[in-house]
Design a protein around this nucleic acid. Structure first.
Lengths: 188, 188
DNA sequence: GTCTATATCGAGATAGAC
DNA sequence: GTCTATCTCGATATAGAC
C-alpha cells in the first residue's frame, strides 16, 4: 500500500498533527523530524492535503475493521458494546490522534467533503445508535464520542496507566449508553 | 477594559477560531469579517498572540465567576454541582469556543505557559475534584470535561434545542461524577 | 481609527541534478 | 529517494498619511 518512505512520513506527520494541529504543522517540520528536505517529502506526496488525507484514512481504516467485526454480531446491543470497546482501545493506543480526528478543523472539513469518509461515518453512527433512539440516547452518544476523544490527553489522567484508563472509560461509557446496568444499582 | 473596536475584534476572532482553529485563522480573515484592513486590527492589538490571549482571558473570566460563586457554597458537593452546571451552561451558550479552549494546540500551549492561566486551572480542578478523590473520580472528571467541550458541536445533536441539550448534559454529568443518584435507580 | 503601501519571512510547491 | 535552488503566495507586522 505505502512505501517505507511514505510510511515514515505518515508516522511523523501523525505525531506532529497531534501536538501542533494540522494547520500548525508545516512540511518543513515533517521533513526535519525525518532528517530530510521538503523536496524529499514532496516526492512521495504531491501536496500537504494528500498527507492529511492518508493519515486520516489510515486511522479510519482501524475504525472500519472494528465496525466490520461489530456488525458480524447478531445482537444489536452486543454489536454496540463491541464497537464501543474497540473505539476506546484505539483512543488509548493512538493517544492524541483521536482528538485530532474529532477536533482539528482541517480534518473535520476533510471528513465532511470527502464522500467515502462521510459514508463511513454514517455507517459508524448508525451502528452506535438504534434507528429509533430517543434524544437522550443521541446526546449520550455525542457526549461519549467527545469524551473518549479528549480523555486520554487530559491533564487529570496524566499519571494513570493505560489499562486502568481503558477499563474505567469502558465502564463509564457503557453506563452512559445504557449498554449495561449500573454496577450495584437496579432500575425500578 | 476593552474599547468598542477591540471588543468587535475579539468577537470576530472568537467565531473564526471556533470554525478554523487559531492557526487556521489569519489576521486578514479577522479584518475581512469586520470589513476593515489588517492595519486597523494591528492598531488595537500589536500581535496575533495578543488577540488569542485576550480571547482566552475573556472566556476564562466567565469560568472564574462561576468558580467564585461555587466556592461561596459551604457544602463541597453542592459547590461542585453548581460549578458543573455553570460550565455546561457556558459551553452551550458559547458553543464552539469551549472546544477551542480545550483542544486547540495554540490555546493549550498558552494555558500551559501563561502563569495566571495555570494557577486558575489548578484552582478550577481542585474544586471539581475532592482532595482525596480516587482514580475513577479523576477519570470521570477528565471524561466529562472532554465530553462537554465536544458535545455541543457534535453532528449527533445538530437538531436538538439548547435547553434539552443542557438539561440532558447536566443529568449525564451528575450521574457520571456521582453528584446525584440515578433517576429511577437506587444504590443497594 | 482607519487607510495605503511596504518590508520580511515562512509556507506550499516545482525543476532538475545526483 | 534525496538533494539544492528557486518560485509564488500569503502571513505577520510596520510606516506614515488622513
Amino acid at each position: 500500500m505505502y512505501s517505507p518512505a511514505q510510511t515514515r512520513i505518515l508516522h511523523a506527520a501523525l505525531d506532529l498533527f497531534a501536538t501542533h494541529g494540522v494547520s500548525g504543522t508545516s512540511l518543513q517540520m515533517i521533513a526535519d523530524a525525518l532528517g530530510v528536505t521538503k523536496a524529499a517529502v514532496y516526492h512521495r506526496f504531491k501536496a500537504k492535503d494528500d498527507i492529511v488525507l492518508a493519515v486520516t484514512e489510515a486511522e479510519l481504516c482501524k475504525l472500519e475493521e472494528a465496525l466490520t467485526v461489530a456488525r458480524a454480531e447478531n445482537d444489536a446491543v452486543e454489536a454496540r458494546k463491541l464497537l464501543v470497546r474497540r473505539i476506546i482501545d484505539l483512543s488509548v493506543e493512538r493517544k492524541g490522534f483521536v482528538r485530532v480526528l474529532q477536533n482539528d478543523p482541517v480534518v473535520i472539513r476533510l471528513l465532511g467533503e470527502h464522500a467515502p469518509f462521510r459514508a463511513f461515518m454514517s455507517e459508524l453512527y448508525a451502528t452506535l445508535l438504534d434507528r429509533d433512539d430517543d434524544v437522550e440516547a443521541r446526546i449520550s452518544a455525542a457526549f461519549f464520542t467527545a469524551a473518549i476523544a479528549g480523555t486520554t490527553v487530559s491533564p487529570f489522567v496524566d499519571d494513570i496507566d493505560a489499562d486502568t484508563l481503558r477499563a474505567t472509560m469502558i465502564e463509564l461509557t457503557e453506563r452512559m449508553l445504557k449498554l449495561a446496568p449500573l454496577k450495584g444499582a437496579r432500575i425500578r
